[in-house]
């Protein structure tokens, strides 16, 4: 695809192509996290929708963020993969560029604890504010204590 060629020439040092197992998908690994915002800005004219944001927790090395972009013209997919430091998962927010990313990033913050710099409204989205822990992390084990916790102070 010409977009991929253009991106590769633009971000030559930090962008590498990976083989993808899915049809129509182009998989690119971005090694320089700071360049994400610029990259998204440059592809947002071509790929107009952030289809989904897949976060994979791979302890102890990294959080693997897969930004899956799609477009309405055809069924082409473009996946940008970014690896984050597991101890300090911080990355730039792209919610200002693509409004559809806003809640996906809030969800990643809620369930994984990944912080997005410059996000307009970074709060928990699915769980309540006093919920203990980040449930989708691999080190989070569903114990009886968690299952019995109601967040209420009930006395019978």
């Amino acid at each position: 695809m010409e977009t991929v060629e253009r991106l590769k020439s633009e971000f030559s040092s930090s962008l590498t192509s990976l083989p993808s197992t899915n049809a129509n998908e182009t998989l690119l690994l971005l090694s320089e996290n700071e360049a994400l915002k610029k990259l998204v800005k440059s592809i947002s004219t071509e790929f107009d929708i952030l289809f989904t944001l897949l976060v994979v927790d791979r302890p102890p090395e990294a959080f693997e963020l897969n930004y899956v972009f799609s477009r309405y013209r055809d069924s082409a997919l473009l996946t940008i993969r970014v690896n984050l430091n597991h101890d300090k998962p911080v990355i730039d927010s792209i919610a200002k560029i693509l409004p559809s990313a806003e809640w996906e990033e809030r969800e990643a913050y809620d369930l994984f604890g990944i912080k997005f710099r410059g996000h307009p409204d970074l709060r928990r989205i699915l769980l309540q504010d006093d919920w203990p822990g980040r449930p989708l992390r691999k080190d989070f084990v569903v114990t009886d204590e968690i299952r019995n916790w109601t967040g209420l102070d009930l006395k019978f």
Partner: peptide, 8 residues
């Protein structure tokens, strides 16, 4: 029942 966010 084994979900982390449901009441049994």
């Amino acid at each position: 029942h084994d979900s982390y966010n449901s009441i049994e």
